[in-house]
């Protein structure tokens, strides 16, 4: 057992090291060259004015957003996979990200036209998060109700895909009936990426993400029992209903808040928990959750570094990069030797 513990600590240390390394690489990546020894100057004094602005207003917030977005989307995916006992569950697959998008659409296209000042303050962060989380939670509730009747993994996933399309249709419908300015605001939001969060938005995102993560941490012990099966969990005294509500809330808050500011980030939520299972070899959520969190941040930072590779100064959409990383993992889960049912 001690050998086991040492391995886990070693794993966490190496993941943290990779995370820090990629964080620095991400700060340096971009069309404007910033050297490593300039960084302390930006943080503690004043250096080259243009570089300072690029660093403090753009690179640093972007890297921080990548860390938060990767961690929260991945943990949200992990919680959903355990809750549904379904290895292919994840915010984007089950339509939870679309639900968050619908929440934002309702806010921007329906409530906003009533009051312009309100819109401005809402876009600053809290309103956006609130609507996105409620949207995400609503879709999760629907999926959970369905999956309590339908046990088959594939059926639940197909229903998730259908719900995602249905939600997109509702958003299109809302767009059809809204005026030009509102539509423009919404379209800009949908193109959102991790690179344009305002300081107040970043603050809101951090606070809500930490809250969601803390909520998940309180459920670490029940999560392990729930993974064994609902009847077992109940027989050892887990209050399934309470745990489920808290985990729902956590998963919705985590996926909703990121989606609110960064738009839907594809395949991170579904793929990273599996990567964490492989690197840690664990099924205990005390190990899985931190591994998933660190791996998620690493993958997101790596994706951001990759998206800056084109030398022309243009940046690839981060969604494309995460998809290209995540989809092979998902295919491997479905078609791999162990098969979809043996991935837990």
């Amino acid at each position: 057992m001690t050998r086991n513990k040492r391995n886990i600590i070693l794993l966490f240390l190496s993941l943290t090291f990779i995370l820090l390394l990629l964080f620095i690489v991400d700060l340096l990546a971009g069309s404007v060259h910033i050297s490593l020894n300039e960084i302390p100057v930006f943080l503690f004094g004043d250096g080259n004015a243009t570089h300072d602005i690029i660093f403090m207003k753009f690179r640093l917030p972007k890297a921080l957003t990548a860390v938060i977005a990767g961690a929260t989307m991945s943990v949200s995916g992990l919680l959903m996979q355990t809750l549904f006992r379904n290895p292919l569950a994840g915010p984007d697959v089950l339509g939870v990200s679309s639900g968050a998008g619908l929440g934002v659409a309702i806010m921007l296209l329906t409530f906003a036209p009533l009051n312009n000042a309100l819109t401005a303050s809402m876009m600053s962060g809290w309103g956006l998060i609130l609507f996105a989380c409620v949207g995400a939670g609503a879709v999760m509730l629907i999926i959970m109700l369905i999956s309590s009747r339908v046990r088959d993994i594939m059926t639940v996933l197909i229903i998730g895909v259908l719900i995602a399309s249905a939600v997109s249709s509702v958003v299109t419908l809302l767009q059809y009936f809204s005026n030009e300015t509102m539509l423009k605001t919404y379209v800009i939001w949908t193109m959102g990426n991790i690179g344009n969060l305002s300081p107040s938005q970043l603050k809101a995102l951090s606070i809500v993400s930490v809250a969601g993560l803390l909520l998940a941490v309180t459920q670490l012990k029940p999560l392990n029992a729930i993974l064994m099966g609902d009847t077992f969990a109940r027989s050892v005294g887990v209050n399934i209903r309470t745990s489920r509500i808290l985990l729902f809330a956590s998963a919705s808050i985590l996926a909703g808040s990121v989606t609110a500011f960064c738009g839907p980030i594809a395949f991170v939520g579904i793929a990273v928990p599996h990567i964490a299972r492989i690197v840690s070899g664990a099924s205990d959520h005390k190990v899985l959750l931190p591994s998933t969190l660190l791996s998620g941040s690493i993958i997101m930072l790596a994706s951001d570094v990759i998206s800056n590779i084109p030398p022309s100064g243009s940046v690839l959409p981060i969604n494309t990069v995460t998809s290209l990383i995540g989809i092979p993992v998902v295919i491997w889960i479905i078609a791999g030797k162990k098969g979809i049912k043996k991935s837990f």
């Binding site: 012990k221 029992a225 099966g229 609902d230 009847t231 050892v236 299972r277």
Partner: peptide, 28 residues
């Protein structure tokens, strides 16, 4: 119950350790 263990990535020891659930602290 008749509910089978549907897990694969769990060691025998860890599975048995879950029986201690009522006695362990909030982190298990």
């Amino acid at each position: 119950s008749t509910e089978p263990i549907d897990l694969h990535n769990i060691k025998v020891y860890e599975a048995v350790a879950l029986g201690r659930f009522p006695y362990t602290n909030w982190l298990g």
